[in-house]
């Protein structure tokens, strides 16, 4: 009799003999041991990141001021423990009457990548694996096709006379595809136009990274490493506080600076003044002046994301003193 016949004959209850009992328990014990062995790498897991408190933490927009204060205090403690420094961490809200925009002078940029490194230092981004929010492309003159650009140019001296340089970072789009696709609303657009991420809410699906046409988002594929001595203690909840493995991050126009009236780190470090930043709701601001008077364009306008990051060319050519009349085309007329 095969065991199946037995089973059928007894209606699913095979006779519980000592032998079958032993066999069953041996099987179960062996199975459990194999299971435990398979899951053994979990003993290296950093369990501090899985507390009940964190599990129950609310979404940024649902936290009351006291909830937020408790979370901030917890994060201060974590930073202090890991980096031996007490951070000045706060949640800075957007200011009324402010909408930020960035303008970058392509004629001036020399491709020195100082902005890239200033950003890393300011925003506590991982040194290993390396995460950088700004990517500078070395473009051949006469082309705006990004595929012609070089990402890994390495010259003893910049700029190279045959190239121009195009830094790209998050464009803080007014119609952001990354926000649209996020299944859990872990990323959203703030009142001042900045697209932010709640690192404690992100589930790490990387759909936003696939959606971004500017390749602005970066994922923490491993636990980010920042040397203790390099930590910037000036932190905000939605910007440069230390991130964890498995979540998304990106440029946020230095919320910890700009919402308190300072300039972004990438702008401050620029040796040639190619970077301009400010409030476009203020008509007197430098960015407003640039948007009104310069030859401004946005990258990939055809994807309809309405970036708040603008590129512009030199001076206000053609000048008014060089006006010429339009040629007359014979036989034709304007319909």
């Amino acid at each position: 009799m095969t065991s199946e016949d037995q089973l059928v004959a007894t209606g699913g209850r095979d006779n519980l003999t000592r032998r079958s009992f032993l066999r069953g328990s041996l099987g179960a014990a062996g199975g459990a041991a194999a299971l435990a062995a398979a899951m053994s790498p979990l003993r290296h897991m950093d369990t501090e990141d899985f507390t009940v408190e964190k599990f129950l933490q609310k979404h940024y927009k649902e936290m009351s001021p006291s909830d937020m204060e408790a979370v901030l205090e917890r994060i201060r403690g974590e930073v202090e423990k890991r980096y031996a420094i007490r951070p000045e961490l706060r949640d800075i809200k957007a200011n009324d009457g402010v909408e930020f925009a960035y303008a970058l002078h392509l004629g001036r940029c020399i491709g020195c990548r100082r902005c890239v490194h200033a950003c890393v230092a300011e925003n506590n981004t991982s040194r290993s694996p390396e995460i950088q929010y700004i990517r500078v492309l070395e473009m051949p003159k006469g082309s705006i096709d990004l595929e012609q650009g070089r990402h890994d140019y390495d010259r003893p001296k910049v700029p190279d006379p045959d190239h121009y340089y195009m830094p790209i970072q998050c464009h803080q789009c007014a119609n952001p595809p990354c926000v649209k696709v996020c299944p859990v609303e872990a990323t959203w657009q703030e009142q001042d136009g900045l697209v932010v991420i709640d690192y404690d809410w992100c589930i790490g699906c990387r759909y936003c990274e696939a959606a971004c046409p500017y390749w602005a988002r970066r994922f923490n594929f491993a636990e980010p490493q920042v040397p203790r001595e390099n930590i910037n203690p000036n932190m905000a909840y939605l910007s440069n506080r230390p991130r964890k493995q498995g979540v998304m991050e990106k440029c946020h126009f230095c919320i910890q600076r700009t919402r308190e009236g300072r300039m972004p780190a990438c702008l401050e470090v620029c040796p040639v003044g190619a970077r301009k930043f400010g409030n476009i709701l203020d008509p007197e601001s430098e960015v407003s002046q640039i948007l009104n008077n310069k030859h401004v364009f946005v990258l990939k306008e055809e994807v309809g994301t309405l970036p708040r990051f603008f590129y512009y060319f030199d001076e206000d050519y053609p000048r008014s003193e060089s006006l010429v009349s339009l040629p007359v085309i014979s036989g034709g007329g304007h319909a």
Binding site: H59, P183, V184, E185, I203, M248
Partner: peptide, 26 residues
Amino acid sequence: VQVDLGRPDRFMHMLWRFNFPVSMLT
């Protein structure tokens, strides 16, 4: 989908803030 997530422990966030109907993932 679960193994693709960077933070599978936060899968429950789907229930609290479900970006429906905007996100196709929802």
